[in-house]
Design a protein around this nucleic acid. Structure first.
Lengths: 233, 233
DNA sequence: CGTTTAATTGACCAGTATCAACAGGAGTGG
DNA sequence: CCACTCCTGTTGATACTGGTCAATTAAACG
C-alpha cells in the first residue's frame, strides 16, 4: 500500500437535514468534501486487507476508486459481508475504539484516509460537519435495517433479485450490471452458499428475467419482473 | 395515548468520543438528557402502535418505561423485528423524512418525544450535541451489523443463545431473564418460526443450559455453555 | 497451451418450515 | 370456586428450501 498527499477540493456546503433521501454511495456531493484537506490517499491491491476486525479504529475512509467489502467472521470461518463499498462511500467510523469488522479490497482500489482525532476536533468546532456525519451514518443505518429484513425473511430468489436491483441502481448503465465480486462474496453478502447463488442465477436466466453473458455481467431483460421477485411490493 | 409536560433534568456533559464502548440501552447518562427540556412524555398501551412505516419522521423518541419493538413488513405479512427498545434507548431518528419502520409497544410503555426540527436547530448550534447524536447512532449501527451476522450465518440454537445473552445483559438480575415479548416476537427478531424458537428453548432446557419456569422467564444455569453456543468464541 | 481457480450442475441430505394436534394459563361467567 | 373459552406455547409428523458433497465445465493466468 502506498500513501501520498491529496489535493484538496473546494469546500461545498449542504443544506442541514434537507429531507432528501441521501445516498451514501453515489459519489454526489454531501458537504464532506471539505475533509479532503485532512485526508491522504492510499491504494490497495485486489484482495488486500485495509484493516482487520479488532484493529484500532483511528482512521475513517472514503472510497475514491474500486470496490471494497467489510465483513465479520465467526471463529469457524463463516463470514457475513456487511457492505460492498463503492466510490463515494464513507466507512470505518465506529462507536468504539476498535473496528468491529474487517475491510478488504474486492478490486484494486484507492481510498482517502482521514484521522479520526482530527475529524473529532473539526466536528467539535463545526456543528454542520457533525450534522453531515450524522446524516451519512443514519443513511447507512437505514440500509442495514433493510438488510436485516432481507437476511431474516427473504428467500434465495428474493435475496438475489434484491441484490441485483441494488447493484443495478449503482451501475452507470441502464440495464447492465457489472459484478466485480465473486460468487463467494455474493453468497456471504446474502447469507447463502455459492451453489445456491449459482442455481438462483440460472433460475433467473431460465425465467428470462436476466441474461448472463458471463459470471461477472448481468443483463436485466425484465426489470419489473425482478422488482416483483424481490418480494418488496 | 396521553401527553403532558416533562420536568427537565440538569444538563450533563460527556467527553467527546471517549473511546468507551457505548451502550444505547442501559439508561446511563450520555449527555442527551439536556434534550429533556424540549421533550414531552407519551404513554402507549401494550400492543399499540406509536408510528407506522411511512409515517412522517418529524419526531424522535427515548424510552422511559416499558419495552417497544421496531419492525418492517413485507407485503405478504412476513415481519422482521429490527430492535427491542428498553428504557434509556433512543429511536426514530432517520435519514429521510418518512419512518422506514414501524414502532409498537410490547408492554405498556412511555416515551419522551422530541421534535426533530428543534433537535436539528439545537444540533446546529451545539457541536457537542451533534457528536452525542452521532455516537448513539454509531452504536446502533454496530449492533445492526452484529445482527446481520446472526441472521445471515447463525443456526437456530446460536441465534437463541445470542438472544438470551443479549437479554441477560440488559437484565437487572445476574442469571434470570425476563422476556416480556411473545414467541412470535422472538421468532421475528431472529428470523425463525415460533415452532423453531419453542423447540430450541426445549433443547437448551434438555442440555441443562437454562431452566424455563414459564414461557416468559428463563433461568440461566450455565452461562459459559450459553456463550459457547452463540458460536461467537 | 497447460495449469489452476472459479462457477455450474447434479445427487443427496439436513435444518428449519409447515401443518396439525395437544397442553397449559388467564380471563370470564355461571 | 369451578367450568368454559380463548390464546399462547409446546410437541409431533412431514415437507421443502437451501446446504453439503462431488463431478464437470468454464474462465483466468502463467
Amino acid at each position: 500500500m502506498q500513501t501520498h498527499s491529496f489535493t484538496a477540493s473546494p469546500v461545498i456546503g449542504l443544506p442541514f437535514f434537507d429531507g432528501r433521501i441521501p445516498s451514501v454511495n453515489d459519489g454526489r456531493s454531501n458537504g464532506l468534501e471539505s475533509l479532503d484537506t485532512i485526508g491522504s490517499v492510499q491504494s490497495i491491491r485486489a484482495g488486500a486487507e485495509l484493516y482487520a476486525e479488532g484493529d484500532s479504529a483511528n482512521s475513517w475512509y472514503r472510497v475514491t476508486s474500486g470496490i471494497l467489502r467489510t465483513y465479520k467472521l465467526l471463529p469457524d470461518g463463516r463470514r457475513q459481508i456487511d457492505e460492498f463499498l463503492f466510490p463515494g462511500d464513507y466507512f470505518g467510523l465506529e462507536a468504539c475504539a476498535e473496528h468491529s469488522f474487517a475491510a478488504e479490497a474486492v478490486t484494486t482500489a484507492s481510498v482517502v484516509r482521514y484521522s479520526r482525532a482530527r475529524l473529532d476536533t473539526l466536528a467539535a468546532e463545526d456543528a454542520r460537519l457533525g450534522a453531515q456525519l450524522l446524516q451519512v451514518t443514519l443513511a447507512r443505518l437505514g440500509k442495514a435495517h433493510e438488510r436485516l429484513l432481507l437476511l431474516g425473511r427473504k428467500t434465495a430468489e428474493e435475496k438475489l433479485a434484491s441484490f441485483l436491483l441494488e447493484m443495478l441502481d449503482r451501475s452507470s448503465a441502464r440495464n447492465i450490471i457489472d459484478l466485480p465480486m465473486s460468487r463467494t462474496d455474493i453468497a456471504d453478502y446474502l447469507g447463502l452458499t455459492i451453489e445456491t447463488v449459482s442455481r438462483t442465477f440460472s433460475l433467473l436466466k431460465q425465467e428470462q428475467v436476466v441474461e448472463l453473458p458471463n459470471a461477472h455481467h448481468v443483463v436485466v431483460i425484465d426489470r419489473q419482473a425482478l422488482e416483483v421477485l424481490t418480494g418488496d411490493e
